[in-house]
Design a protein around this nucleic acid. Structure first.
Lengths: 348, 348
DNA sequence: AACGTCTTCGCAATCGTTTGCGTAAATTGA
DNA sequence: TCAATTTACGCAAACGATTGCGAAGACGTT
């Protein structure tokens, strides 16, 4: 059995017509007589003819494929984004090539080159934790490759962006802690080269300010890695203070969980002694004990919106001005037991 | 600024040579004089020439792309598999197109067709929960498309398979419960159209038999959906028995967690009153309380092995016999608090 | 000097499809 | 009946790269 995909030429030969006639007949071109058209179409479908999309791509210089660079597929939030991307892309007839940077700058650059090289029609990405240099992305823009950032974007680059309103989310989370009566609220911040981390920090500060809380820099600790272990160690530093915090707003859920562990190991109670709110609403957050309050990000919707923007840009003519829209999606605070001092624990 | 990828022709024109000379010079063909070769290579690199991979694909009828169909990216195990796939594929110069079936038969068929249509060099897949009809896969085989199953495979199809030794994993999990002194061990089984579910059930049965435990069909309950809620309800049925189980081995971790909830709601203790062991070692399993014992599947390695098999098959000539190797990977039982009656809880 | 050989390069076909243009044959109009 | 359209199709180039073959010129050999 040999791999023998049938082509337009095969059909042409069998029917004694030219390939061009077959091509036109298959796309219902008016120049072809109904009789010929019918014969060709019937033969094509009986032979289960499938146009060679590689040849099409070459002819039209369009691959109908978009590339995605994501820090880590295993992250639930990003999985949701991917699903959103696929949702829109597939229904627009596009394929999706997914690559992971694994939070490595080097791999991000490699993936960018590889995608560019395989002539994808557009690229969507969320930059890695390590990325500080944006030359590889500037190259894309210089080559007129449609580009859309999602979640983690580069402020200075002139491209479409879809972000969640991190500041608003952080603001709400912090406000919630304030309303619950906590008065010494710490923040486990993320790496400050990521815009999202800065925004969350800003939201935290804004909430404190709006409520006439004094800002205490000692209560803001940067967790550069965002890991469980790091957060546990840093939380221990906080708890060692003469006047330790009675609430912690964490930049991410894993760090929040690390903080919870540190708290529990000291025999302190959550949320009575120390309250916790995380960010991202990982899947495990509703399962741990006590269930962790967290700020949800609309991942699926983010994927959808980013893809819509990309499609719009791909559809643009070469002479038209590139669009550089920015869409900001609202976050949502999910309150669970870890921060509920006043009311009864909600059923998660 | 126009998108203007430079081609071999551009280089040829600028240097007053023919495209064929450029092509040969760039790949160090001996027919080209060192002088010409040098000029061409220098111009190419100064222009940052990148060969058009679409044209290459057309010429060589090879896209250097493999397609992956996965039930759900968000599942941690599958994320790990994807990482393993990318690891091998990228270092072999292959791209990876990932698609999700979302456990839907219809989408699985659609994805299969789409991948076939875009002329990927091979396909790797894990069938969806719904899939009972394998015609779409048989079509692939009939068209000589290299195919590798991973995790969830179709026994009857003549293709490469990489599976985890589910039976061994289930056997070990059950044996562990027996060794801990539990004597009425229930099993929350998965949908029996999936081979993996059947194998896990068999492992459970084998362990009971080898230890002279009587098999009680009432203690085996099928959880078709594998959801938290379903498992909770079914566990309640088990606990309603006059002689309820004192241990549960679950086909998957989410169901195990549902069971834990049912048990806790009745005021029963884990593992003193009822022990639990899950399957798949989801990320949350080490985080919940008590930490859930679970059988780990080597996802990353599975992705690697499956990709190696696929590469091997792609490299095969058209006349050579297709290989149909099956690789079985060992699972590993991670013992945590949820099943440790005898010893002190291990640090997870 | 004539012939053979090697070096170095170009021609043209090819992969599968699309499409502008040309052109026979069929049809129409007066 | 003859010219003007219209109909229905084929030719050939194009997308970008590769490659078998041929060939011109340089060089060596006898």
């Amino acid at each position: 059995m040999k791999k023998t995909n049938i082509t337009i030429k095969d059909i042409a030969r069998k029917l004694g017509v030219s390939p061009s006639t077959v091509s036109r007949a298959l796309k219902d071109h008016p120049d072809i007589s109904p009789q010929t058209k019918k014969e060709i179409q019937e033969l094509a479908s009986s032979l289960n003819y499938q146009p060679n999309s590689v040849a099409l791509s070459l002819r039209q210089s369009k691959t109908h494929t978009i590339g995605v660079i994501i820090p880590e597929i295993a992250h639930f939030f990003f999985s949701a984004v991917i699903s959103g991307i696929e949702d829109i892309a597939h229904s627009a007839g596009y394929h999706v090539i997914i690559t992971q940077s694994n939070e490595s700058f080097e791999r991000e650059v490699m993936n960018t080159k590889a995608l560019f090289n395989s002539r994808v029609d557009g690229i969507m990405l969320s930059i890695s934790r390590e990325t500080n240099n944006y030359q590889h992305l500037q190259n894309l823009l210089d080559n007129n490759v449609p580009l859309v950032f999602f979640d983690r974007m580069v402020e200075s680059l002139n491209a479409c962006k879809v972000i969640v309103n991190d500041e608003q989310g952080a603001y709400e989370a912090t406000t919630h802690l304030i309303e619950q009566g906590y008065y010494r609220i710490a923040h486990l911040a993320g790496p400050q080269n990521l815009g999202i981390s800065k925004n969350r920090l800003n939201g935290y500060k804004a909430a404190l300010a709006d409520n006439k809380y004094m800002m205490d820099d000692n209560l803001v600790k940067v967790c550069g890695l965002g890991t469980y272990e790091e957060a546990e160690a840093i939380t221990n530093e906080l708890l060692d203070y003469r006047f330790p915090p009675d609430a912690i707003f964490s930049n991410n859920d894993v760090a929040a969980y690390g903080a919870m562990t540190a708290i529990k190991k000291r025999g302190l109670r959550i949320p009575e002694d120390v309250a916790i709110v995380g960010f991202s609403n990982w899947r495990f957050s509703s399962l741990i004990q006590p269930a962790l309050s967290s700020v949800t990000q609309p991942g699926f919707k983010m994927g959808q919106e980013a893809t819509r923007l990309l499609m719009k840009q791909i559809a643009l003519g070469d002479d038209e001005e590139a669009i550089t829209e920015t869409i900001s999606l609202k976050t949502n605070l999910v309150v669970r037991e870890s921060s509920l001092k006043k009311k009864k624990p909600a059923v998660s």
